[in-house]
Design a protein around this nucleic acid. Structure first.
Lengths: 146, 146
DNA sequence: GTCATTGCAAAAAGTTTGCATGTCA
DNA sequence: TGACATGCAAACTTTTTGCAATGAC
């Protein structure tokens, strides 16, 4: 598989190894698909259920490793436990407009935002991975109701 | 002070009370100003340092209370511990650059982002309230370690 | 064979809760 | 006075770490 082959290579470049455990964790994320948010506990349980035993400590270590390699991305929603999702390359950044009153959301793209994110990353010496803008406001209906 | 007076009134409306502890927590957020991200531990330590003893359990309870009253806002940055900031109306938007590997964060401003948020809001008939961009990347140190 | 990695268990970090005591209105 | 809030300590949840054994290359 393309991703796993790349993983083996990337790990080698860092003097690290491709173990069955690492493979199983990444496989799981690929199996459930991008957009699924898994906690360490989720990963652990699902692997157990699939008869692919990986200790919880190793799950944590692997999640950190894969995130540092940008294969996984940690979500920014404080849900009590950290959650990760597959960081698929072809996913393009999209932004959200959220109505503070009714919760209605709209998605939009913006080259300007992408540029601003790239500028900020460059200014602070970061290598850009993704940018996500959340705009809060009142939608037409709710603004009229106020 | 306006905010505290409002706080007393709002609490009454919920059958709750304004205690010195709650006042101290909110005072601290007002003293450090909007845009400062404090964890429960931060609040606890800073209050101790200011000779304003509030137990850690009460800090947690108060943070939850003030957030539910929309006086504080919980940040959506995975930093190991939950962080809160003052949710003042006149607060100007600031954005975050987060290292996907080590969690280090930097803040930045951007007129471009503000403009993009305003454009998107206008296009979808929203009245803009706030916009928040989160840029994920690898900081210099982590990018070098890869 | 070497050295990174694993599993386990213990420890650390972060957060919540039960309960007796204290206090705001 | 009475209901709500606090402090303390214990419990709980989530995450990290030390270390001996294992296994990838």
């Amino acid at each position: 598989m393309a991703v796993s082959g790349g993983l083996r290579h990337d790990l080698h470049g860092r003097g690290q190894r491709l173990t069955p455990q690492r493979q199983r964790v990444l496989d799981l994320f690929e199996r459930v698909g991008a957009g699924h948010h898994l906690s360490a506990e989720d990963v652990h349980l699902q692997l157990l259920r699939a008869d692919a035993r990986v200790s919880l400590a190793t799950v944590y270590r692997t999640l950190r490793l894969l995130a540092s390699m940008a294969l996984l991305r940690e979500l920014e929603l404080p849900e009590g436990s950290r959650r990760f999702e597959l960081a698929s390359a072809e996913q393009h950044d999209h932004h959200h407009l959220v109505c503070a009153a009714c919760g209605r959301t709209e998605e939009f793209d913006s080259a300007q935002v992408l540029q601003a994110g790239a500028d900020a990353a460059a200014k602070h010496g970061f290598r850009l991975l993704s940018s996500r803008l959340t705009v809060r406001g009142l939608c037409g209906a709710c603004a009229a109701a106020v």
